[in-house]
Lab assay of single mutants.
Amino acid sequence: MQFKLIINGKTLKGEITIEAVDAAEAEKFFKQYANDNGIDGEWTYDDATKTFTVTE
């Protein structure tokens, strides 16, 4: 399945899409990606669109 991350950071904005087995695997990848890029904010997930959003 495809999952999307929308980044609304103070210094980094954009979107990335990955293939993952389930939402838990996608969330783990996205949170590591955000951590690696210094993004720390509020997370939301929309199951209907398979979209995670992080907002700083």
Rank of each mutant, 00 (worst) to 15 (best):
M1R: 10
Q2F: 12
Q2Y: 06
Q2R: 11
F3P: 00
F3H: 03
K4L: 05
L5R: 00
L5S: 00
I6F: 12
I6D: 03
I7K: 01
G9C: 03
K10L: 05
K10D: 03
K10N: 04
L12I: 10
L12S: 15
L12K: 11
L12P: 02
L12R: 06
K13P: 12
K13N: 13
G14N: 07
G14F: 12
G14W: 12
G14I: 12
E15Y: 14
I16F: 05
I18M: 05
I18Y: 09
I18D: 02
E19K: 03
E19G: 02
A20Q: 05
V21H: 10
D22M: 06
D22K: 03
A24Y: 14
A24T: 08
A24G: 10
A24V: 08
A24N: 14
A24D: 13
E25P: 04
A26Y: 00
E27W: 08
E27C: 10
K28H: 07
K28I: 06
F29M: 06
F30M: 06
K31I: 06
K31L: 04
K31M: 10
Q32W: 13
Q32C: 02
Q32L: 10
Y33P: 00
Y33S: 03
Y33W: 07
A34H: 01
A34L: 07
D36I: 11
D36V: 12
D36H: 15
N37P: 01
N37D: 03
G38M: 11
G38H: 08
G38D: 04
G38E: 09
G38L: 13
G38T: 14
I39F: 14
D40H: 15
G41T: 01
W43E: 00
W43H: 01
T44K: 15
Y45W: 14
Y45S: 02
Y45M: 04
D47S: 10
D47Q: 12
D47N: 14
D47F: 08
A48H: 12
A48T: 10
A48W: 15
T49S: 08
K50S: 09
K50P: 01
T51E: 04
T51S: 07
F52V: 01
F52L: 02
F52I: 01
T53L: 05
V54C: 03
V54H: 01
V54A: 11
T55Q: 10
T55C: 08
E56Y: 13
E56A: 13
